[in-house]
Every structure is written in C-alpha cells, then in structure tokens.
Design a protein around this nucleic acid. Structure first.
Length: 502
RNA sequence: GGUCUGGUGGCCGAGUGGCUAGGCAGAGCUCUGCAAAAGCUCCCACAGCGGUUCGAAUCCGCUCUAGACCUCCA
C-alpha cells in the first residue's frame, strides 16, 4: 500500500516517490503579512499541516518550508502600482517592518490556535534579497530576462519557445497557451517597459516615495511578484524537491512563473508533485479580498462578524476543513459550522470514552461478537488506505463516526464489554490516538481547572443528595442552571455523574 | 473569448459502473423521577434529456446552471 497524490502538473493521481529515500522536501506558499488572515487562508495551512503530519506518520523525515511574504507583492488597482506593505504602513503610521511584524505575529497566533505544526524553516522575503538578486542575475545571463528602466522582466516568449522544445512550455501547470490569453484592456503600470504582455517582473524599480527598497545592480528597487519562492525553495530544498503546495488560485500566474524562473536557473522543473487545495466559498463564491466577503480568523473565533451567529472554536474550523476533501470546494455557512461543532463534540467524547475504557478486564482474546470485531478492524485498517489515496480525511472521519456507537455502546453497556477482543480494543485505542491527535491534529483545550472541577463535583454531590431525598426541585435547579452556564451533566449508566463543558 | 472544475436527500459533505459513506437537523423507541447523554430504528438523494451497458450518481453526448483562473488573492 503506497501513497498516491494528485499531481496538478499531470492532472492525475500518481504514486508518491521521494527523491531521496526516507526524506521529503515540501514547499508551501505562505502568507503575505500585509493584513490579517481570514478563513480562506486557513484552508491551505491546515491542509498542508495534515499532509505534513501524515508524511511524518509514514516515517519520512520532512523539511517543510513555508515562506513569509513581507516584501510586498504588488497591488495594481487600476492605474497605480503600489507596494501594499509600504502604503498601508503610511495609513497606519507604522514602520513597514513594524506592520509586517504585527501581522506575522497574528498569523503565528492563528496557526497556533489551529494546532498547526510550525514549518521546519519559515524564511522571509526581506531576508533573502541577496538570493533573489543572484537568481535574477543568472536569468539575465542566460538570456531569459531583460532590463528596462531599472526594472527586470522575464522574457516569457523566449522561454516558451526554447523550453517547449524540451517539453516544458510556459503554462504547463495551469494548462494555458500564451497565445490564447485574453487581451486585457486594463492599463497596467509601466506596461510599455515590457516587450510582451505576458512578461512578468523579476525586479521593480522603486519610485521615490517607496519605503521598502534595496540596492541592486539595476538601481534601487524591490523584488518582483514570484522570485522569492524560487529563490528560497532552491536555497533550502535544492534544485528539485518533492512537493510544492498552495491554493489553487496560485496556479496561475504565481506557480507558473516560479516554474519558469527555477527551470532557467536549475535546468529542471522545481517540484515533482504540485498539490493544490481548493477554495472555501461563501454563498457559492470564493472567499477573497476581491469579493469583499472575507471573515477574518479573529472574527471567527470571537463571533464578531455580521455573517456569524456565534463564535467558532479553532478546532471546529479545523474539523470542518477535515470533513471535506482538500481538492473540493468547501461551502461556509453558520449551519455547516454548527453541524461541524456538534459532530466534533460527539467524536471527541467518544474518543475520550475510548481512552478511559479499562483495558484487559477480561483475558479473552476471542471476541464474543466476531462480526463486530471484524468490522472494527476493517474500519481501522481503512484509515491508512483512505489517507494513502490523496489524503482523504473525509473518508477517515466517516469511519471514525462509524466507530462512535460501538465505543459508546461498550462504555454504556449497551454492548457487552467482551464483544471485541482485547487486542482489537488496544488497536482501536492506538490507531485512534495516532489519527485523532497526531495526524488530524485535533486537540482538546479542555478546561483542566482543579477549582472548577472541585466546584462542579460539589454541585454534583449536592444534587445526588437531593435526588436521594427525592427533592427533584433542587436537583433540577442545579442541572438546569448549569446547562445555562454551558455545563451539561450526564447521568451515567453506572450511577456516576459526568459533565461536559461547552 | 480561452483554460478548468462543479451541480448529490432540509443543510454540509464522501463516493468514478453493481455491495447504494458520514455528520447535522427531523421522527419513533429503549434507558431515566423527568430530562440530557448514550444506544436502536426510520428518513434510500444524485440538475435535465438522450446514449453506452445485463446494470450508471459514477462512462459518452447535448442542454441548463454555478463557480475558479486568465489581474493582487489561500
């Protein structure tokens, strides 16, 4: 059984084979820290987090590189090209690096909330200006870029002509044919500098008011749209690496340009497998700045957004994303998120129940219900199978939910304790823990507060005494008032009382 | 205009030829002082029209429809 991944480059599922045995190099396009991350951004970072975690589970040593874009890509709104980061800094009266730091911190905070593992290396664009300049020089030397008024442009046409002969045409990732591109009537800044409309900037000459600027062989300026990813992936992962990831919307032009730049410099396609996650939609539309329909992560966690009826816990978001396949669109709505919240709770509680099941209460290795035992073993075995099929977390969760009634049934004695063999229960515990915590990265931020526990236990005791005296008025007050406070008491089958906090 | 991807039960979402996931919501039952929780049962959908096939949500064609990219965007 081997891992198969959908490669955007070939548009097929392919068997995954790493370049170096036992090692994986993975590059994922990170955030532009000129603003706060929104729900749409959460998708790739959670997606590639569980991919990273799964590769680790398979035993690979993974170098996971995710950049921070802090040098400012261009926003070409109509006429004026301006560096996003420097212009916003003026508005907010902050130093550019102060702004960048603020949003980097916020990003890290959000990643932490989602329980995403930090990448192995998180390089910044501003920290790699030298590498980017070196790479641009190489491209010029090879004749695939030209200088115009202190800016440098990549010669797409020449690249396409030469590399098509090698079977590496420009547009191979996104299935584009450069002759067929739409003629934009839009006026882009400095378009006349380009030899061809498809050419893209490697280096931009900085106008005087531009704050972020570096010296280069072509004058003072700043790096172009795509060069940082090429420079940094090459530096940390080599000429060719295993996986390049990002959102589908980056396929063109960003990843296409990356391929062109890197191929010129390194004489080979940078990544073997290109993985792209799909978008989160809201009312059927992609969530994105251009649509003005973004919900920021902080708003999501606090419920402060007109579209939200309540706050949603980061783990609910994570679970919501895990419930669909990463290449499908995922439609946001309060209802969908509420369903995810309840589903996660049910799964979480079953998981806890399982972990608390006493082990080896009987020595019987033969289950009394062989059919059920077999079913459980099969459901567990399918976890790996589903993940190996292009990381199908949705199907794994489906199986987990099928295990829930079995686990709860044993716990609540609706099923005999020895229905399953001891070894199956052990296997279940072991695998579920790995999948739940290690691969899916679901964690309990459980209130582990001794004082609160003590207070609740006291109330439970009082209620028990009231019940013993058939003073149901008192016992019901305790139960009903607690539920209003988000604490749900559960009368267990064995007479004990447990609770869950919402 | 080009390239591409979708349209699945009240909602969300798996599923690429037969065994018809799963979650949420809803209904009934068991348990319970009553509830809740838990368990059991029910709710058998695949945009439309043709075609291929013994058999299609799944393949092919057409139609309708939604969306993505072609411009910063996860």
């Amino acid at each position: 059984m081997s891992l198969k991944v959908y490669n955007s480059l070939s548009r097929k599922k392919e068997e995954f084979k790493s370049i170096t045995d036992g090692h994986v190099g993975m590059y994922v396009c990170g955030p532009t820290v000129s603003g706060e991350s929104h729900l749409g951004h959460a998708r790739p970072f959670i997606t590639f987090d569980f991919i990273y975690r799964y590769l680790l589970y398979l035993g690979y040593k993974v170098r996971y590189v995710r950049n921070i874009t802090d040098a400012g890509h261009f926003e070409e709104e109509g006429r004026e090209a301006e560096d996003k980061i420097s212009s916003k800094a003026v508005i907010e009266k902050l130093e550019p690096m102060e702004l960048v730091q603020k949003y980097t911190n916020l990003f890290h905070w959000a990643m932490n909330q989602f329980n995403n593992l930090p990448p192995s290396i998180e390089p910044t664009a501003t920290g790699h200006i030298v590498e980017q300049i070196n790479m641009i020089e190489e491209i010029i030397k090879d004749g695939y870029a030209y200088v115009a008024n202190g800016s440098v442009y990549f010669d797409v046409e020449k690249y396409n002509t030469d590399f098509s002969k090698k079977g590496l045409p420009y547009g191979m990732l996104s299935g584009r044919n450069i002759e067929e591109q739409l003629d934009t009537t839009r006026d882009l800044d400095n378009q006349e500098e380009k030899r061809n409309k498809n050419d893209f900037a490697l280096w931009k000459n900085a106008p005087p008011e531009h704050i972020m600027r570096w010296k280069s062989p072509w004058g003072e300026g700043f790096p172009g749209w795509h060069i940082e990813c090429s420079a940094m992936s090459t530096k940390y992962l080599g000429d060719q690496f295993d996986i390049h990831g990002g959102g589908m919307d980056l396929q063109f032009p960003h990843h296409e340009c990356e391929i062109a730049q890197s191929t010129v410099c390194n004489h080979k396609t940078p990544a073997r497998y290109w993985l792209h996650n799909n978008m989160i939609t809201i009312n059927g539309r992609k969530m994105g700045k251009s649509y003005n329909n973004v919900i920021k992560l902080s708003e999501l966690f606090t419920g402060t957004h007109p579209l939200l009826t309540q706050a949603f816990h980061p783990m609910t978001i994570r679970f919501f994303i895990l419930q669909s396949h990463y290449r499908s669109t995922l439609d946001f709505s309060n209802e969908a998120l509420q369903a995810a919240e309840k589903g996660l709770k049910r799964l979480w509680e079953a998981y806890e129940n399982l972990m608390k099941l006493p082990s080896s209460q009987n020595n019987s290795q033969t289950p009394t219900d062989e059919e059920l035992d077999k079913k459980v073993k099969n459901l567990i075995a399918e976890f790996d199978e589903f993940m190996n099929d292009d990381f199908n977390t949705a199907k794994v969760l489906g199986n987990m939910f099928e295990l829930v009634p079995i686990i709860n049934g044993i716990k609540n004695k609706q099923l005999a304790a020895d229905s399953l063999s001891e070894s199956t229960i052990q296997l279940l515990k072991q695998k579920l823990k790995i999948y739940f915590a290690d691969i899916f990265g679901l964690k309990d931020d459980g209130v582990d507060n001794e004082q609160l526990n003590g207070v609740l236990q006291l109330l439970i005791n009082i209620r028990n005494e009231a019940k013993a005296k058939k003073d149901f008025v008192t016992s019901d007050i305790i139960r009903n008032e607690l539920i209003k406070l988000g604490v749900q008491l559960k009368d267990e089958k064995d007479g004990t009382v447990s609770y869950s906090i919402n």
